[in-house]
Design a protein around this nucleic acid. Structure first.
Lengths: 178, 178
DNA sequence: CGTCCGCTTGACTCAGATCAAACTTGGTGG
DNA sequence: CCACCAAGTTTGATCTGAGTCAAGCGGACG
């Protein structure tokens, strides 16, 4: 289902573009002409505040779209920057909209994709709302269905919003039968 | 736009149903026959684990849909329970799908609604990933554009994943010019 | 063989959770 | 009008989970 969607999208007119680390993919206020499908690296969607700080709204890694909401808005509401060197596929927004309007199968696949994103973002939020590392790891395992394989621990620590050291300790604790 | 969608949805065949606190709205595995629009109270979507614990996947408050993803799946993947007394509007899933398939305007509105949900869920996750209460409150204010009005503080504390006391202290700290 | 990176463990420190106790406020009913 | 109750707010005291800094270990890879 999701693959059908990706196939259809890949068939659309597009270009590839590479961004240097720190470079902007687009700015708030820019007209939306393309959808960004990240192929390598990491890009962030963020809103700058007057005090200089910035809130991150999305972290897009390879395989994910950068600002899904931009399909239906004329201008961007946020900035997007590359946190690493990024390679992205730029797909014509107009072509994607036409596809959405004329092909109910694609429309359903897209809505379904969005619903999945909602689910996973909410799950992440609920996990992060837990107070202890033990609970967060427990929830992560319950959600994924498996114990995180060695080699991914550092990444998992980031996902559940804790320091690598704390996660290592929690894992060690579990090994000792709690 | 969102209002158009709600109007269209309200015009669909539906029934209203009240659930007692603790009652299940549906169980994992049940066939999806209706979409739930919460009108009063709070309902949670959750996945139970073998060890007895449960992970919350969504917290639906008045005005929001309970399991958006269920529009496109035949069976529920989770349980839903009422955390308070809940009044919900049950909308025929079939009717909503037909509307989605035949009315491009509705389809767009629905996808747009989902994109918004994605945005806000991701924002919540990013806020919860911040380490200090000061940063979380700062991000919350930046996102909402206003200081939380008195009377809502306890709720805000919950939203940003902290205890009411800690939030009160942080607010007091801000009053003293940082 | 050296270097990098992920992992491991120890020691220290501190933000914030928790418990507890007052005090404000609004609403309710007598 | 007042007694009274419930909720939200304040503030204090205490305790603990986990972030941080630091030092050491082991495997992968050029």
């Amino acid at each position: 289902m999701i693959n059908i969607m990706l196939n259809q999208i890949h068939a659309l007119p597009h270009t590839r573009q590479v961004f240097r680390k720190g470079q902007y993919l687009f700015h708030q206020g820019d007209p939306v002409v393309s959808m960004f499908l990240i192929e390598a690296g990491e890009a962030r969607l963020l809103r700058r505040q007057r005090n200089g700080g910035a809130i991150v709204l999305q972290r897009a890694s390879p395989g994910s779209f950068l600002a899904e909401a931009s399909l239906f808005t004329a201008h961007y509401h946020c900035d997007a920057t590359a946190t690493t060197r990024v390679s992205a596929r730029l797909i014509s927004r107009l072509a994607m909209r036409k596809l959405f309007e004329n092909d109910p199968v694609f429309a359903e696949a897209w809505a379904s994709h969005l619903a999945d994103e909602v689910r996973s973002a909410r799950l992440r939020a609920e996990i992060l709302a837990l107070k202890t590392v033990a609970e967060r790891l427990g929830a992560w395992i319950a959600a994924k269905g498996e114990f995180p394989p060695k080699g991914t621990w550092k990444t998992v620590a980031q996902e559940i919003g804790t320091s690598p050291e704390s996660l290592y300790r929690e894992i060690a604790r579990r090994r000792l039968g709690k």
